[in-house]
Every structure is written in structure tokens, then in C-alpha cells.
Computed example of a mutant assay.
Amino acid sequence: MTVFTATPAERARKKRAFTVMGWMGALIIIVFILSMSTGTLRLSPSDMIHTLFGSGTANQELILYQFRLPRIVMSLLIGAGFAVSGCILQGVTRNALADPGILGINAGAGLIVILYISVKPINHDIFLLPLLAMIGAGATATLIYSLSYRRHHGISTIRLLLVGIAVAAGISAFMLVLTLKLNPDQFKFVQVWLAGSMLGMDWRFVLALLPWIVVLLPFVYYKARVLDVLNLGDQTASGLGTALNRERLYLYGAAVALAASCVAVGGGIAFVGLIGPHLARRLVGPQHTYLLPASAITGGLLLIISDTLARMYDVPTGIVVAIIGAPYFLYLLTRAK
């Protein structure tokens, strides 16, 4: 029997990855605690502790349990979902600039959500939105993939990026036309939603998103080695016995479902799927066994920090993320070969 043992380099890489993720997890806990006390009505550390142990006032319990905790938990879930979706797309396309927002997937999901809101009352079924968003995102992803495919050359990563940007621009223009036909209440809701505002999040939103995250993240992690093989190139991956089209379809579908469900409940938050995987790759390396969980942690950390800042300055969370993400995207674009 042959016994395979990890090399010293592999053990050192594993130790470094777990150390980095441990520090990031500790940072999330610190920001989580700070975020609970941050807002228009500030809770002191003693007030927060008393409230958590059931001895706070009714107003303090309302603020903490009904307003802040759902919003903080949603930030972590949405950040993790977007970041893992971006990590998958970057791995499948072998394109460092791939992101569900840049590739138009978020726009496709948003279009269906706006169409649904335009014909339904504001108190829509939050549990139905992820399903509808996945339909729109899936249709958009199929369109982008079809326009990027060439019979004898396959998928060009540059073509995929450019087609995604073009399709996203067209969908965004159509969404703008739709918003102009909404009544004042619907228009106000859509504008806030498009800006990526986490305002008004409650535990229903958490329950609507949580099943998608719980199901899809383990599935994607199970496919981590497939992503590593795909990064070796099509010929090498085929030589190793990988069913390229089938595995790409599974991973692409998982990325679309993660992005669509996050867009449905969180709105138009961009760049998390781009920044999260890039920062994680710098910290733990390109091996997806470590990169995927590190991306989830990094995306959650990025969004919870952005949401905390958004509550401090009373602006939508998506705007704070865009202020951080747009310069970083331009930086990556100038370095891309």
C-alpha cells in the first residue's frame, strides 16, 4: 500500500492558510461586535452586554435584535456568497477580472426582480425573489456564454469579459426605463434596492438567503480540486480525465445561483465578487481548497465593514463598496495582460 504524505511545502502552505483564515475570522468577530453598537442610536458596550443577556430595555432589544443583528448577519452571508461566486467565475474562465457584477449576472437577476416588483405590491414574497433572480441570472449567463463562444476556439476570456460588460450595460438601460414607469412607492423602493441598501433587513431576509448559502457553499467546496484542474488548461484537464463541459456547467450554475440569490435580497452590490477572491488569493495562494473558504471570509469581512461605515454615514452599503471596489478594479485592469 502506498502512503501519500504531505511535503513540507504543502504543510507550510496549509498552516499559513489556516493561520490567515483564523486571524480574519477573529477580525470578523471584532467588527461584528463593533457593528452591533454602531448606528444612529448608539449602544454602549454595557448596554449591548445587558441586552444580549436579556436585561436591556425594550428599545435596546428592538434595535439590536430586529434591526442590527439581521443586517449584520445578512452582510456576512451576502459578502460570502458574492465572493465565492466571483472566485468560481475567475477559476472557470481563468480570468482575474471575472465577477458576477462585471459579467452582467447581477444585472440579469436585478431585471427579473424589478419586473416582479413592478407588477406586485411592495410587500412582495421575499422567499420567491431568489428563484426569480436565478432565472434572470441564468438566462443572462447563457446569453453571455453563447455570444462569447466560438466554434473552433471555445471561450475567449477577454471576449467573455467584454460581452458581459456590454450585456450588463444594455440590461441596466432597460432597468432604468422600467423604473421610470413605476409608481412613487415602487420607484423609491427600487432606487434604494439598486443602490445596495441593507436598510430594512429583517430575519425573513436571512431565512430567504440562508438555504442557498448552506447548500451551495459545501457543493462548491467539494468541487475545489476540479477548479484547480481547470486552471491547468483545457488540454491538461482533459488529459487528467475531467469532463470539462459538465464540470464547467455545474460550477457556472453554482456561481450564478449564489450571485442571483444575493442580488435578490441585497440589491445591486458590486465588486465584492472581484475584490474578495483577489485579496484571499494574495493571502492564502491559488489552491481552491483554501482559496474558496478564504474568499467567503474575506467577502463577508469586506461587506460587514462597508455596512458598518454605511450606517455611520447614513448611505447605502453598495455605495461604500463601490467607492472601495471601483479604484481596485481599475488597478487590476491596468495590470491585466
Rank of each mutant, 00 (worst) to 15 (best):
A322S: 15
A107W: 00
I304V: 12
F32L: 10
T298E: 01
L244T: 07
G266Y: 04
M201R: 05
Y222K: 08
D47G: 01
N59R: 14
R94E: 00
T51F: 09
G91P: 05
T40S: 14
L217F: 14
S295V: 06
I323Q: 09
F329W: 03
G266Q: 02
Y65W: 15
L129K: 03
N59Q: 15
I269D: 05
A310D: 02
M1N: 12
M24C: 08
G164V: 07
M74R: 04
I117W: 02
L258A: 08
A296V: 01
Y252A: 11
A169E: 07
S75T: 03
T298N: 06
S295A: 09
T308I: 09
R11G: 11
M198D: 04
L216T: 09
R159K: 14
A141K: 07
I324T: 13
V256F: 03
Y145T: 14
I213P: 06
G273E: 08
I171P: 13
N95E: 12
Y328Q: 07
L129D: 03
M201G: 06
R246G: 04
A257W: 02
R225D: 14
S172I: 07
V215M: 11
L240A: 01
A168P: 03
M48Y: 01
G253E: 02
R159G: 10
K15P: 03
G86F: 09
M198R: 00
H50L: 04
G267I: 10
S35H: 05
N106D: 03
H152A: 13
G325F: 12
K337Y: 01
A243C: 10
